[in-house]
Amino acid sequence: MSSIKNDPPATVSNQPDTDTGLPGVHTWRGIYLLVAAALVLWIILLTLLPHLFA
């Protein structure tokens, strides 16, 4: 097995964006974008929550 020292560090750019096998979202970048979007949505909803029931 080759030494890890000779392997470039894994990054988004040097890995092929393989198929996720999921319907609707076929790339990993798409999944990561969805996860990040879900977080932003949660932060917005939680910020608004006390104002909705004031």
């Binding site: 392997d7 560090p9 988004v12």
Partner: peptide, 21 residues
Amino acid sequence: FGAPFALIFISVVFLPIYRKL
């Protein structure tokens, strides 16, 4: 709040190396 970003980072960087080796 930081957990989703951390898990994405692990999925992109840590996991491929652990599995490759």
